[in-house]
Each structure stands twice: as C-alpha cells, then as structure tokens.
C-alpha cells in the first residue's frame, strides 16, 4: 500500500512532495534527475498573462543558511505555457499545479479563465498573491485581508479548477489572511512565500541585488515557515501545503507534524537535484519505523490532542 498517497481537493497525488514555484521551471530543467511524474506535483514557475522580462542582475545572493532572489517572475506568459510546456507535462504524466501571477485582478482573472479549457490537465491553480519582487500585484494582493477576499472570490467564480492561495509571510498576522482566503472558498492554502530582505556590499556600499530587495529562502526561514503552518492549519479547515527551507525528510516530517497535508521543496533542489526522491524515501521510512499506516496519521500531531 502507498502510505504517501494523498487526495487533496479531489485530486489524487502519488505522494505529498511537490516542486516549489520558481525553483523548477516547467519541469524540464531537472528531467535528468527527477522524472516529473515521480514527484507529487509539478508546481510551475509563476506565469503571467504575457511575457514578463524579470528584474535586472544580480538577481541571486547567498546569505547565511539562505539565499536572496529577485528574479521578478520572469516567465514566457500563459499562452507559451499552454502551447509548449503543458503538453510536455501531460505526456510525462505529471500532476500539474500552475502558479498564476498578475499585476491586476483582471490579469489574474484572464489567466484563470484561459485555463478552464484544461480542467483535466491542470490539476490546480496556485494563486501567487505573495511575490515580494514585483512592483505591482504579487504581494500587494496578499497583505490585506479584504483585497485577498475580493480577488479570490472573483477567481473562484470563474474556475472549475481547484484554487490554492499562496500566502506571504510578510504580514502582521498570517492567520487573518488565511481566514480571508478560506472564506473566499479557495480549496487550499500554500505557505510560505519568501521573506523580504536585502544584502549590502560593503565595498560598493550599495545593495547587492539589482532590484535592491529580494526574497529570502532556504534553511534560514524554516522555523518561521513551520510556525505559520502550525498556526494556519489550526485556524483553517482547507488542506495546507507547507514550504519554506525544507532541505531533507526530517524538515518535511516537521511540516506534516505542524499540520501540512503536502509540502513543496524549492531551494534545496539547487543543492541536491535528487532531493525530492530522498525526502519521499525518508518520509516512508519514518512512517514504517513508527508503525503508521498512512501519512495522514501524522498530520497536525504537534498540536492535536
């Protein structure tokens, strides 16, 4: 029996270990190491209505146990995805979660509408209301509960594909945002996106990144992410997809214990292109060693009575 099989918002996933948006392209870049059907789902690069060129270089800077990025959601646009990347993912039998990015509510709506011709091929839409690296849209939509509610209600009306709201940690109270999203009837919540940060070059005395600010990811942010999953999973009924600094199966198991029903692995894949496999194996081992019959037995155990 597959102890890791997870059914979330009506979709069967072979395992709960997904790629993380922005670290995995559209699945092809790591095909020499991870066949896309062997991870739970491919969560794509944030995709906009038309091509976005992204931010000036440098876009990447390593920090203590983490990295800052300011890619700026560079992507080829939704039409390009539907024409060139979705067919590849379908052919390879992947579960597909498209990450959706927009500057305006109308742009989000138009992308979601365009996807409705692919209700069997795109298994969920992850609505990116949390990118810290774009000047319009992104995080601007994800930090005010009223705006979150309004946008997601609008999108939910036009979508037969399940919606996941990807939340930002750059807020005073993530539970408030999560509840607003849940009341807009979204099917799931994913958290967290990167934490807004900066690095300064002491030689030039100027910010390192071309965009000045970047999003912090990697092991440095794991305790923050874990806490937010711990809080939100207790406050909301929809399944939580947890992410933020997961480097190995121990980290992953902590997220399940905190209340996540699935996880995404991002920055770790840069270090170890086979990390998804190792995490899947490690979770299985943990369940066997502790005599659990299924992953669902451990979800939320850190706070359940």
């Amino acid at each position: 029996m597959n102890k890791l099989k997870q059914t979330l918002f009506g979709v069967d996933f072979n395992n709960p270990v997904f790629s993380d948006s922005g670290t995995f392209g559209y699945g092809r870049d790591y095909e020499d190491f991870i066949p896309v059907n062997e991870i739970g789902a491919v969560v794509t690069k944030g995709t906009s209505l038309v091509e976005w060129k992204g931010n000036p270089a440098p876009r990447i800077y390593e920090t203590a146990a983490g990295m800052l990025n300011s890619i700026g959601l560079q992507n080829p646009g939704i039409e390009h995805f539907l024409l060139n990347d979705l067919p590849y993912l379908i052919e390879k039998n992947a579960k597909v979660i498209l990450n959706v990015a927009g500057h305006t509510a109308e742009q989000y709506e138009e992308i979601v509408t365009k996807c409705q011709d692919y209700t069997q091929q795109i298994h969920a839409l992850e609505i990116n209301i949390s990118c810290p690296n774009v000047t319009e849209g992104g995080m601007a939509f994800g930090t005010n509960p009223d705006i979150v509610y309004e946008l997601l209600t609008k999108l939910k009306k036009v979508s037969d594909i399940p919606l996941i709201a990807k939340l930002s940690p750059n807020v005073t109270d993530i539970v408030e945002i999560a509840k607003a999203a849940e009341s807009a009837q979204v099917d799931s919540l994913s958290l967290i996106n990167t934490l807004s940060g900066i690095a300064i070059d002491i030689k030039t005395k100027k910010p390192v990144l071309g965009n000045i600010y970047g999003g912090l990811s990697g092991p440095a942010i794991k305790p923050v992410a874990l806490k937010m999953v711990y809080q939100v999973s207790q406050a909301c009924k929809v399944p939580i997809i947890g992410m933020g600094g997961i480097m190995n199966s121990t980290d992953a198991i902590e997220f399940f214990l905190a209340g996540a029903s699935a996880i995404q692995v991002g920055t770790a894949v840069f270090v170890n292109p086979k990390v998804h496999h190792e995490i899947i194996k490690g979770i299985n081992q943990y369940l066997s060693d502790n005599n659990y019959t299924h992953l669902s037995d451990i979800i939320g155990l850190s706070w359940k009575e």
Partner: peptide, 17 residues
C-alpha cells in the same frame, strides 16, 4: 560569470540583459 543558484536553467537567477 554571474551569481548562480541552480545552474540548470530553473531559477533564472544568473540573468544577463
């Protein structure tokens, strides 16, 4: 040369205009 994370084209970090 550019700061690089993934090295395989996935993260789009090492950008040149």
């Amino acid at each position: 040369e550019e700061y690089m994370a993934c090295g395989v084209g996935a993260c789009l970090g090492c950008a040149v205009k």
